[in-house]
Design a protein around this nucleic acid. Structure first.
Length: 484
RNA sequence: GUCCUAUUAGGUUAGUGGUUAGACCGCUGGGCCUUCAACCCGGAAAGAAGAGUUCGAUUCUCUUAUAGGACGCCA
């Protein structure tokens, strides 16, 4: 039975990279009919943000990522919030001290800073120096006992073997080998008695019977420590899969300064959850076919860790926009109408009957990226107050006698009969143009501007038909009444 | 500084020890024609540099360059 977990920290909004990690876990679980768990890793009290958990769960729910076990839904392996499991970590940490795979250390923050500064100066990698710092081994048993008894601040560190290579297999990276001398003696229990990520993570993954740890690449370097911990406990490690980083267009780690990175930002901008999920699923994974558009279920069926790539994935905002537009073209107009009706009402529009709005959406959606764009792009259909036209463009039109003649005919002849179908309209438009000695092509663009105050839009026939004769007349008059 | 990783058209990305190196976006030519857009049919356009292994390397190895990541009593 596959059991995976997504384990965010409640330090803020859900990052788009975290959404990807959560999504891959979710897809993998569903693909294998396994269980997807949400676990809150709040072992750092100083970074806790009120309401962050609720917000993250809401963002995940918006994206369609759901969990079978977690603090919000319960389960057999709880509690699912680490701050509610503290006794456990202390107990397991002590177990390692007793079996000799971890040890007490008493160094102060200042002493550690000094040590790192010395190492930095000497040009070597900063790493806890077990042989010179103040710990169980340098102090001796009696002194250690004494310090402990008098309640001196101390931590518990992992005793990393210095002369051994740590090996593990990663489903994305392949075989990974790291020499013990490059691994730091990680703190497992902090001086305040709280566990670090490493200890809590390993203990919980074991207790929650996690089979696959799917997480971001930033965890790859600390995985050897986790392997060592599993070994120290005598536990079987899960399978690891480290996902490539999500990158800014300049290839640096994706961050705020290059654009939106929080899921809430994307929601606000008007992306469909389907398109964001579809796009993000392709950041670091590909199906091996040329399919790019995937429904939720298709994603589940196609996903596999084998097809996750090693190279960092650059987040291409333009491609995301393109994808959102594709979804906009494919969805149900009536559903969309229901979604934007409240917005349209708020914008003060008068022609927002549900069926009418659905028709407008069908007509205009090929030209915009976001559903909400329909509201501004279709202003001339939803209301009778038109946008301002560039004065020079307008005067070019009003001073054009042939156009004036053609549109005078157009105004006189416009009727429901002429709008019965596209051919009739075409014929009618041609005759109007002919009366003025114009080519019909030369008349159409000006006519569009006169009627919509825009030079881009749906087919004119559709536009006029949707507008109806009565709404077209005043707009034609507004043009014809201007003195040349 | 140490360790690790990546580098394919303008952008995002597939694939491969022998291929016309594929796709989407963008660009461009044309069609349709009721302008623009959309749509349809075409086109141009790519394996960082060097060396090695090999009959043959974009693919494997090494070096260099560039970019990134990790090196906390953060997660």
């Amino acid at each position: 039975m596959v059991r995976v977990r997504f384990a965010p920290s409640p330090t803020g909004f859900l990052h788009i990279g975290s959404l990807r990690t959560a999504l891959y876990n979710y897809l993998f679980a569903r693909r294998h009919h396994g269980v997807c768990i949400l676990r809150i890793e709040d072992t750092d009290r100083t970074r806790f943000v009120e309401g962050a958990i609720e917000e993250q769960i809401a963002s995940l729910k918006w994206a369609g990522v759901t969990f079978d076990e977690g603090p919000h839904v319960g389960g057999q392996h709880g509690p699912y919030t680490q701050s509610e499991r503290f006794d456990l970590y202390r107990q397991y940490g002590m177990q390692l001290v007793e079996n000799g795979t971890a040890y007490y250390a008493f160094d102060s923050a200042q002493e550690l800073d000094d040590m790192r500064a010395r190492q930095q100066n000497a040009g070597i990698a900063p790493k806890y120096d077990r042989s010179t710092m103040r710990n169980q081994y340098t102090l001796g048993e009696a002194e250690t006992r004494r310090l402990l008894d008098e309640g001196a601040d101390h931590v518990i560190r992992l005793k990393v073997p210095l002369d051994e290579e740590i090996r593990f297999h990663d489903d994305v990276r392949g075989d990974v080998v790291v020499h013990g001398r490059e691994i730091d003696d990680q703190v497992l229990l902090k001086s305040d008695g709280f566990p670090t990520y490493h200890l809590a993570n390993v203990v919980d993954d074991h207790l929650m019977e996690i089979t696959h740890v799917i997480r971001g690449e930033e965890w790859l370097p600390s995985t050897p420590k986790h392997i060592l911990l599993y070994r120290a406990f005598g536990w079987e490690p899960p399978t690891f899969a480290h996902l490539p980083l999500l990158l800014n267009p300049d290839r640096s780690k994706m961050s705020k300064r290059h654009g939106d990175v929080m899921v809430t930002d994307f929601i606000k901008k008007g992306y469909f959850p389907e398109s964001l999920v579809n796009y993000v699923s392709l950041c670091g994974w590909n199906p091996g076919t040329e399919q790019e558009l995937f429904s939720h279920d298709e994603l589940i069926a196609a996903f596999s860790l084998e097809r996750v790539s090693k190279a960092g994935a650059i987040f291409d905002y333009r491609k995301l926009d393109w994808m959102n537009a594709e979804y906009l073209k494919a969805g149900n107009p009536e559903t969309y109408a229901d979604q934007i009706l409240p917005d349209l009402a708020q914008m003060g529009y008068t022609y927002i009957d549900r069926d009418f709005v659905a028709k407008v959406i069908t007509l205009l959606r090929e030209r915009v990226t976001f559903l909400k764009d329909i509201g501004t792009f279709g202003d001339y259909l939803f209301g009778d107050t038109l946008a301002n036209v560039d004065p020079t463009v307008w005067s070019d039109l009003t001073s054009n006698d042939a156009l004036r003649t053609a549109l005078t005919h157009f105004r006189a002849g416009l009727s429901a009969d002429v709008l019965r179908d596209a051919d009739a309209f075409k014929q009618f438009a041609s005759s109007c143009a002919a009366e003025a000695g114009m080519k019909v092509g030369a008349m159409m663009k000006p006519l569009r501007i006169v009627l919509t105050h825009r030079d881009v839009g749906a087919e004119l026939y559709d536009t006029v038909a949707l507008l109806g004769v009565e709404r077209c007349l005043p707009r034609l008059d507004a043009f014809l009444e201007v003195q040349a």
